[in-house]
Design a protein around this nucleic acid. Structure first.
Lengths: 107, 107
DNA sequence: TAGACATGTTTTTGATACAAACTAATCTGC
DNA sequence: GCAGATTAGTTTGTATCAAAAACATGTCTA
């Protein structure tokens, strides 16, 4: 009746990748956050090389997926936006990493 | 004057990734082709789990980038579309792989 | 107080991945 | 021999989404 589950499902491992993480701009953001635990908007701007607009919308997307948490504060009258990975975000990044490593290794 | 070239360029390693390869559906196709050297449409369909329409358009995209070569023949009156990696395709896949491995390793 | 700078956000636009519809040829039952 | 099903693809339509451009809001400086 059956052969392998992968054949039955008709799926390739890459088809189950988390596209929210897979996007290069967001991978850049997530990897910075993973390294620094918490980072502000300007720092992310510098580390990722994204434009302000792109950074803003990618952060919004990651936030609504609950992969990051955003807090806003004022420091000497200038606004400061802080981002940090949530446990969900860490976990999503980590399983993305494992999946991708396995794929690349078998490539 | 300068610090590191990466900082001057204001870029993150992920920003220079080849998006043509990075797309999951195409990664699936390319990895199959990399393993089998040559594969026909139906085989790719089964291995990747893509729909016929998607497979067709991704193949067209890879072909116009000259990452794959497409040949069509008839076998017992039924059409057969064969795809194989070009040297350029092999090279693109291989450098994608190295870039991505390095990134994941440093993550 | 006008104009430059800084920190973001919103809107627009162009690309594109996927799905659905279409094409064209063969085979199968009646 | 022809109606309908099957096979092998392609084309077209649509909805998502990344990036660019425009906008908003506030501060600082001359």
């Amino acid at each position: 009746m059956s052969r392998h589950s992968a054949e039955e499902a008709g799926e390739h491992p890459m088809q189950s990748i988390d596209r929210l993480v897979h996007e290069p701009a967001r991978l850049a953001i997530l990897s910075v956050l993973n390294g620094f635990e918490s980072a502000d908007f300007v720092f992310l701007l510098n580390q990722t090389g994204l434009s302000r607009g792109n950074l803003s919308s990618h952060l919004a997307k990651l936030q609504s997926a609950e992969y990051i948490e955003i807090t806003k504060e004022f420091v000497d009258k200038i606004p400061r936006t802080l981002a940090k990975l949530t446990p969900q975000g860490k976990s999503a990044l980590s399983s993305y990493r494992e999946q991708m490593k396995r794929f690349l290794h078998e490539l």
